[in-house]
Design a protein around this nucleic acid. Structure first.
Lengths: 129, 129
DNA sequence: GTAAAGTCTATACCAAGTATAGGGTCAACA
DNA sequence: TGTTGACCCTATACTTGGTATAGACTTTAC
């Protein structure tokens, strides 16, 4: 199949697929006579794996490490488990930060609920502090 | 004061101050004979305002809009209130996304708690799906 | 006088794509 | 046969909010 079909089947845009290839995340495939990229079912599987990882917010570098690990089936998988664990810690931390931000924004919002003039705006006054 | 002192007092790096100036977020200031930037107390206030806004994750464009609004003290402040409100909605939404991601990561982590071989790794198996 | 610290501009880099320009390929249709 | 339209190609620039560097100039301290 050509890149347009792979794009539709995978849900990745055409540019993204080419981008992954350039980043050495996605193996360069065969080309047709007219220099079109030609993919098969294994390309689709590989791309779905990448997409799954990206949906977990793994970086491209981390995905490369995962792919590298996958190529050593007899090694220990602890690096994989550590990666996921560390991501959970990071996400938890980020959620806490955002919860705090939400509180601040909420306080801010309640400083000026009605429609005033700019010079009397409670929000702007808080921002000046 | 020169940029180094402003940097220390504001907590913004020297590069960041120059970056804000280039983005027209922070007014270009007077220069000394040797072409050094010379700031005063009002520069510090302005910079702190920007920093406060950035700590709320407002974008540079949004901060520009706020600054523009501040220059019209007799206009309505509703755009300010809307901005803060919309940010709260966005942050709430982002938190929900991250909570879901955390759940997924948690499920994933529990698929392989012990130290196995790569080919038996529960995490990698889940990622293949 | 000189060395160190501070400042200047311009430029490149980061992540993970997205968008565009300018061109080539391929199939169908008149 | 010519041409239209859909699809594909590469290369490059752009996004965000800074950070980092090179190479040069200014100021300060001794």
């Amino acid at each position: 199949m050509k890149i347009g079909e792979l794009s539709k089947k995978s849900g990745c845009s055409i540019q993204t697929i080419r981008f992954y290839e350039k980043q050495d995340l996605f193996e360069a495939c065969n080309r047709s006579e007219g220099n079109y990229r030609i993919y098969d079912a294994s390309s689709l599987r590989a791309l779905r794996f990448i997409k799954q990882c990206r949906s977990l917010d793994l970086t491209i570098i981390e995905i490369k490490q995962l792919l590298d690990t996958k190529n050593n089936p007899d090694k220990s998988c602890s690096s994989v488990n550590n990666l996921i664990h560390q991501h959970m810690v990071d996400v938890t931390h980020r959620i806490a930060e955002l919860e705090e931000l939400k509180l601040t924004l909420s306080d801010m919002a309640s400083a000026c609920t009605d429609d005033r003039k700019v010079k009397e705006c409670g929000v702007l006054q808080l921002l000046e502090e």
